[in-house]
Design a protein around this nucleic acid. Structure first.
Length: 477
RNA sequence: GCUCCCUUCGUCUAGAGGCCCAGGACAUAGCCCUCUCAAGGCUGUAACACGGGUUCGAAUCCCGUAGGGAGCGCCA
């Protein structure tokens, strides 16, 4: 058994990293994190970060998803130096446009005889796989077409039998590489079946196009999901056959849902888009992702620049991390509380009454903001502040009853004189009843908002239309 | 089935043989502050999956077991 020498490590130069999503769905949280890590790695070394769209599967890929992917990346603050929307000499950055490049390298493999046409049909293959699995054997390509006589190959080709191109995996070799996060890895080529590098329709398959593009684009480091770990040897084999330099691969553990199962629809949301639509802030999401499977001594909210400085590939975790919404909410709350008045108003706009004037919107937003996690949370308060007199909670009715009519006539009189001014109203009630503390304020809160809990009363009152306080207090006078 | 990866408080993690009867953050509990809520301050509860080795000494090294995950696709 011989050990195949892997390509030498890249000379110390600026790193080139990439994010290579397939546009067959919304940007997944796990992929967003991968994109973030790769961007941080590139920026940290003053290198380049590329966006490559892996749309070789025309059936599943769509331009709409490509656009959505880029929009969500931008929303998160992730920006690439080259990509489908900013091409350079290493492009094109859509795999669907790189056919000629693939064809050239495929031909090179054919010349070397390390690939061969496979005429097995999808049905035959899936039957064979099932049989192998049933027999307790690894479902690997059986090698049916590997040693087909040249004449037979030619005959089938003439007949126009569709064929894929398979990579002839050399027997008895060890494929070794140093994983950026898992350390030294060794795989046996005998455990790897001959795999498809070109589909029957002539398009390049993932193992091939992905590896070749990384090499051709000068990518030096690839941080990707751990699901690619056991496939890495195949890509190394391809690159070695082509004499291309492989990037250093680092496999980050997958993201799990709060229950420890792989992140999926079942968990409510698994795409960036969904969180975005619910009103989560990009800074909250990015801060959460930054610490999933990665640790930093820095605490608190970090900007992208701070993350760039703090990012440490040595601190990428090997164990899968759970995407816990509770933790995300902590960041979200933090971000929301720091929103500028303008940003806060824009954030809340979807739930504000359409005809609201500037001043009222600003007052409402600043009054509510400290108590909000999502825009949705403000909805009931829109009615309370701008709608008719709110119904009282059962517990509140008792409070109001005990306060008595004198309490409220003093309050209503103050409101008639001074408007929606809590200090004035409370002062008048205090003078009239001698109440203080919770006894003084709670009946006011309940009469004014219908609820015993809520945002600070004084600013909330200021946000109400003129006359509201008097009207609501007078109900109980 | 075979191969590979993983396993420290509820969660994210620090920890690379003695600095660890395991540290931090968030969550949680109690107290303080306070018109309620939120924020803030203080205090507390809480973990090395299990079993064997190696060693004077193991969360850290080795071997097993259990549990979780991934790969073995004309999907990426």
């Amino acid at each position: 058994m011989s050990a195949r020498a892997t390509s030498p490590p890249h000379a110390a130069g600026p790193p080139v990293t990439r994010f290579a999503p397939s546009p067959s769905g919304e940007l997944h949280l796990g992929n967003a994190r991968t994109a973030l890590f790769n961007q941080l790695l590139a920026r940290q070394g003053a290198g380049r970060f590329l966006l490559r769209i892996e749309d070789t599967d025309s059936q599943r890929s769509s331009e709409a998803y490509t656009q959505a992917l880029m929009a969500d990346l931008c929303w998160l603050g992730i920006e690439w130096d080259a990509g489908p929307d900013r091409e350079d000499e290493r492009g094109p950055y859509r795999q669907s446009q790189r056919g000629p490049l693939y064809a050239r390298h495929l031909e090179a493999l054919e010349r070397q005889g390390v690939v061969y046409p496979c005429f097995c049909t999808p049905l035959e293959l899936s039957l064979a796989r099932r049989a192998q699995l049933a027999a307790g054997k690894p479902p690997r390509y059986a090698g049916t077409c590997r040693e087909l006589p040249a004449a037979e190959r030619e005959r089938r080709r003439q007949q126009g039998v569709p064929a894929t191109l398979r990579f002839r995996v050399p027997p008895g070799e060890r494929v070794e590489f140093a994983d950026l996060v898992h350390g030294p890895q060794t795989f046996l080529s005998d455990d790897i079946g001959d795999f498809v590098v070109r589909r029957a329709d002539g398009s390049a398959a993932f193992f091939f196009s992905n590896a070749v593009d990384d090499a051709l684009m000068g990518v030096t480091q690839v941080l990707r999901g751990e699901d690619h770990l056991t496939n890495t040897p195949r890509q190394l084999l391809i690159l070695a056959a082509l004499g291309l330099r492989a990037p250093a691969y680092g496999h980050v553990a997958l993201l799990l849902g709060a229950d420890g199962a792989p992140l999926s629809k079942r968990h409510g949301a698994s795409s960036v888009r969904e969180y975005r639509e619910r009103g989560y802030q990009p800074a909250a999401l990015i801060n959460h992702l930054f610490r999933l499977g990665h640790s930093s001594p820095l605490q608190g909210l970090l900007t992208l620049d701070e993350m760039t400085r703090a990012f440490d590939p040595a601190h990428l975790g090997r164990a899968p991390a759970r995407f816990d919404e509770q933790q995300l909410n902590v960041w979200q709350k933090d971000v929301v509380h720091r929103l500028t008045p303008e940003a806060a108003r824009a954030w809340l706009a979807p739930v504000l009454p359409p005809a609201l004037d500037e001043r009222a919107a600003a007052a409402f937003t600043s009054a509510l903001l400290p108590n909000l996690l999502l825009p949705e949370d403000a909805r009931p308060w829109v009615d309370i502040v701008f709608g008719g007199p709110p119904a009282l909670e059962p517990a509140g009715e008792e409070l109001v009853r005990q306060a008595g009519a004198g309490y409220f006539s003093a309050a209503a009189a103050a409101a008639a004189r001074d408007g929606n001014d809590l200090p004035a109203i409370a002062g008048a009630v205090r003078a009239a009843t001698g109440r203080k503390g919770a006894d003084l304020y709670m009946p006011l809160r309940v009469a004014l908002t219908g609820r015993a809990h809520g945002p600070e009363l004084a600013p909330l009152l200021k946000a109400m239309p003129p006359g509201k306080a008097r009207e609501r207090l007078a109900r109980f006078a």
